[in-house]
Design a protein around this nucleic acid. Structure first.
Lengths: 154, 154
DNA sequence: TTACTTGCAAAGGCTTTGCAATTGA
DNA sequence: TCAATTGCAAAGCCTTTGCAAGTAA
């Protein structure tokens, strides 16, 4: 849970952006976004649904999914991981990092030795024991960069 | 595709580990593992199935999934992302990093300023444009560390 | 009024599972 | 022989989608 002023600020920005994007200001949408803005726990859609139902018992799970999808597309929310969807497998058991193309979703390895050790400057949440750090470098692979350049479409 | 000596080495190790773990040395299992060991592209189960069928046309998708699951559990394969499964949402739009508990899967944010910039020492695959780097620190949160200590399991 | 949204329910992907038959040790 | 494994098909999650009714602008 974040502090009230912060939430209020986010809600104001949210309404502005919705207006700019032509998204209607529905009660359901407001509550879904507020629920996410208030949380710090990176909830799943199901969890969002559970929380939102306390305020709007009649809301449907479909509406929650639909709004999440729209808001992610419009850049008002983010997804935590790059890959949820189908499982990706890796036969390389040693610690290493990944390079992911945001367009075609291809994944390449980066050897552990090719990245300077990650250093955290600040204290972690009390008692968290880090076992390993993985770097995920996101961007565009050469093939996708070329395709995007050609179509000029995002 | 990796070089033949490397593959051969991995296959030998694989058979040893299977024997140690009491996993039968079936043709299907061999081919599934070899297919993954040969690949550098982090395929999905569906893709593994597609490739394995060229060698064993009668294999079922279920067998592919079952073997992948067993091999991941036994530590002979890894999954690329930490979270595939249900989508996780993040209202924090600024660049930042994540701390993930490997046991309860909780996710916490690490502010961008709290991590030294990631530096790559080696050249990336030709033409890859990195747009941003995310650090995923994996480990055990305080609560899970305590629970594990108590049950001495895992 | 009109475009956007909602709830509902059905459909779709991805993955797991029960079962009888088969195979490896 | 006996436990482990397979193919098959059904079932289960998570997510998307078509539709008619309802709502915001």
């Amino acid at each position: 849970m974040r502090d009230a002023a912060e939430i209020q600020h986010r809600m104001t920005l949210f309404q502005q952006r919705c207006a700019e994007l032509g998204l209607a200001n529905t009660h359901q949408r407001q509550v879904i976004f507020r629920t996410l803005a208030e949380s710090t726990s990176h909830p799943t859609p199901e969890e969002v649904y559970r929380r939102v139902r306390k305020k709007i018992p009649s809301i449907s799970l479909g509406t929650v999914y639909r709004n999440i999808k729209i808001l992610v597309q419009k850049g008002l929310l983010k997804e935590v991981a790059v890959h949820h969807e189908p499982l990706r497998l890796d036969p390389n058991l040693s610690d290493h990092h990944h390079l992911v193309c945001r367009r075609c979703k291809s994944v390449a390895d980066i050897a552990s030795e090719d990245v300077e050790p990650v250093r955290l400057k600040a204290a972690l949440p009390a008692g968290f024991q880090v076992e390993r750090c993985e770097v995920v470098a996101m961007g565009l692979c050469a093939a996708c960069a070329m395709k995007l350049k050609q179509n000029r479409s995002h």
